[in-house]
Computed example of a mutant assay.
Amino acid sequence: MRIGLDIMGGDYAPKATVLGAIAAFKILAPEHKLVLIGDKPAALSILQENDFSADNFDFIHTTEVIGMGEHPTKAIVQKPDSSISVGFNLLKEGNIDAFSSAGNTGAMLVGSMFSVKTIPGVMRPCMTAIVPKLKGGLGILLDVGANADCKPEVLLQFGVLGSLMAESIYNIDNPKVGLMNIGEEEEKGNITSLATYPLMKATDKFNFVGNVEGRDLFGDSADVFVCDGFTGNVILKLAESFYVVTLKKGMKDEFFDRFNYEAYGGSPILGVNAPVVVGHGISPPEAIKNMVLLCRNMVESKLVEKVKQAFQ
């Protein structure tokens, strides 16, 4: 297995990404190879400072970087030697088995759709986030930002994608899928949710448990929470703030500690033809390490192949 890591992506790159690669290497099996994509001399300097052999990695040198504020499509086209563009070319050609970056999220989405492309049958790829549960375990929230507006048929597919991820990556048996809404009753919600409910109720693709509300997010009502990317991103940013607030208040609580995004590494882009994971722009080494490990888990679980089978 060869896992590609964009070492130029993120606010603290390349130092945080290279240190994260070192931490990941110490956990990965010998047959797992990390491919560092970016400024090779800069990476070698950081490795030397930390007395870590460069022989532990493969390197693909690039000369350009896509900034966090750049237009995704223009940047992908105008910067063919950027670490993100080169990473996707490697993924497309099969030279790496997975690709991860804490860089420009839009560029990662565009790169996914233009290079490895969307799995046939999938209308819209989506991004996921992990939600900790009060009694232990976790749930999956999707979409969290890739699609601000969604048709009912797209939300139905998110249910399929989220259910497959819950089973394959987190070993949740027959995961319960809920539709995020403003009430539990079938007749509640906006036009989109009202049209989505009967589609989910009729499907045999996943275990639909009905509407769920925001207050259900940290409980056991569902394992997969489906919503449009606008709603999901608002929920995600609010949830991330819980951890920050507890730190500022001097509180120490195991549950709120699990809101720390560093523990989860990044958000997989589901619905494309290869494992792709996007990390938080402010990712420190710990988050980079876990982003790489999530890539490994996606490859080992054959999640992409399972999605392809589901949408045949």
Score class of each variant (00 low, 15 high):
Ala148Arg: 09
Phe259His: 03
Asp173Cys: 03
Ala195Val: 07
Val177His: 12
Gly219Asp: 03
Glu240Ile: 11
Asn233Lys: 07
Asp204Gln: 14
Ile288Arg: 14
Tyr12Lys: 07
His71Pro: 13
Gly189Arg: 12
Ala42Asn: 09
Gly281Thr: 06
Leu238Ala: 15
Lys289Val: 12
Ile76Phe: 14
Ile182Asn: 12
Gly229Tyr: 02
Pro120Ile: 11
Ile288Val: 15
Pro275Glu: 04
Phe218Tyr: 01
Glu49Lys: 13
Gly183Thr: 10
Leu19Pro: 08
Gln48Asn: 14
Arg258Gly: 02
Asp216Leu: 01
Met127His: 00
Ala24Tyr: 00
Asn147Ile: 00
Phe218Arg: 00
Ala166Arg: 11
Asp143Gln: 03
Ala310Val: 10
Met200Tyr: 10
Leu217Arg: 07
Leu91Glu: 02
Glu31Val: 10
Met68Ala: 15
Ile119Cys: 04
Glu305Met: 07
Pro72Thr: 08
Met68Ile: 08
Ser85Thr: 07
Asn211Arg: 08
Ala29Met: 14
Val292Cys: 10
Ile235Pro: 15
Phe52Gly: 05
His32Lys: 14
Cys150Gly: 04
Gly103Lys: 13
Ile235Arg: 11
Lys176Ala: 01
Glu187Cys: 15
Phe225Arg: 05
His61Met: 03
Met291Val: 07
Lys201Tyr: 06
Val224Ile: 05
Gly111Cys: 05
Ile37Thr: 13
Thr128Ser: 07
Phe242Trp: 04
Phe230Thr: 11
Thr246Trp: 00
Leu141Tyr: 11
Asp223Pro: 02
Asp97Phe: 03
Gly265Trp: 12
Asp97Ile: 10
Lys308Tyr: 15
Leu91Asp: 01
Asp220Trp: 13
Ser221Leu: 06
Asp228Glu: 07
Val18Asp: 01
Gly139Val: 02
Ala263Phe: 06
Ser85Cys: 02
Gln312Asp: 14
Ala239His: 02
Leu293Thr: 08
Leu247Trp: 02
Lys252Met: 05
Gly271Phe: 07
Asn273Gln: 15
Val209Lys: 01
Met180Thr: 09
Lys302Cys: 02
